[in-house]
Amino acid sequence: MTSRFYELRDDLYHPGRWHLRSPVDEHGQKINPWQFTEGRQLDPQGSIRFPVKPDGVELEFTQSSFSIPVLHRRVVQLFERLGIQDVQFLPAEVQGHAGPWFILNALRVIRCIDETRCREVRHFKPEDGQPERVGEYRVVSGLRIDPTKAGGARVFRPWGWRMVLLVSDDIKQALEREGITGPVFTEV
């Protein structure tokens, strides 16, 4: 079992990089972006497309608006060779860029945030006016997790702070070894 995990983000400072916007369907209608952070199997109806603005250099790992991970086929093939479980790859299109492209849908959400080691943690309270979110995280800075709670997971989202995608050390090393463009890692 690995004891090192990393937040996986895309390199916002990559020179001339593209920026993917919120997903839309084949008719240009917005698709609910939060469904890709819920940790459940999805069965999308129709195609998923990502507008690009500004256009620029493709990244093999990137995140659209709302932190949706979008991967080139090369990344999907690497995950398959590594035998990564608990993920779903949803076909997607990126405006003006040949693919194939995929959304990485992490299927596990794990209660693992180590609040005592984070720089700051605040929870939603009843007075915040969002009763459905009371007890969830409102702020997490300096994210740290308890790796013993990962239970062998290699790709997952932390419960209560699902916009973050976490990966194990072996995945980080494989992405670096393969020379995949776009990923940036922060140890958690």
Score class of each variant (00 low, 15 high):
Ala106Val: 10
Ser168Cys: 05
Val121Asp: 15
Glu127Asn: 13
Gly142Trp: 14
Ser141Ile: 15
Pro158Trp: 08
Arg154Met: 10
Leu143Pro: 00
Ser168Gln: 05
Gln130Ala: 14
Arg157Asp: 07
Arg157Lys: 02
Gly129Tyr: 07
Ala150Ser: 14
Asp114Gln: 07
Trp159Ile: 12
Cys118Gly: 11
Cys118His: 08
Pro158Thr: 05
Leu166Ile: 03
Ala106Gly: 06
Leu104Gln: 14
Asp146Asn: 13
Met163His: 11
Gly160Gln: 07
Pro126Ser: 11
Lys125Ile: 15
Gln130Trp: 08
Arg144Asp: 00
Cys118Arg: 09
Ile145Asn: 08
Trp161Pro: 01
Arg138Tyr: 01
Asn105Leu: 10
Val140Trp: 02
Tyr137Thr: 14
Glu115His: 00
Gly135Ser: 00
Ala150Val: 13
Gly160Trp: 14
Asp128Phe: 02
Val139Ile: 13
Pro131Met: 08
Gly142Pro: 00
Glu132Met: 07
Arg133Ala: 08
Met163Ser: 10
Gly160Val: 04
Arg108Tyr: 02
Leu165Arg: 08
Leu104Thr: 05
Pro131Thr: 12
Asp128Val: 13
Leu104Ala: 02
Asp128His: 02
Arg108Trp: 05
Leu165Thr: 01
Arg162Thr: 14
Ala153Ile: 13
Ala150Asp: 03
Asn105Thr: 10
Val121Thr: 15
Cys118Thr: 09
Val139Leu: 03
Leu143Asp: 06
Asp146Lys: 08
Ile145Asp: 00
Val167Gly: 04
Val167Trp: 10
Pro147Asn: 11
Ala106Thr: 09
Lys149Thr: 11
Arg119His: 14
Val140Tyr: 01
Ser168Val: 06
Ile145Val: 01
Gly142Val: 03
Ile110Phe: 05
Arg138Cys: 06
Thr116Ala: 05
Gly152Met: 03
Arg154His: 09
Arg119Pro: 02
Arg162Gly: 03
Arg154Ser: 09
Asp114His: 00
Ala153Met: 12
Arg108Pro: 00
Val140Ile: 05
Ile113Asn: 06
Asp146Leu: 01
Trp159Met: 04
Ser141Lys: 12
Pro126Ala: 14
Arg154Asn: 04
Lys149Ser: 09
Gly151Phe: 06
Ser141Gln: 13
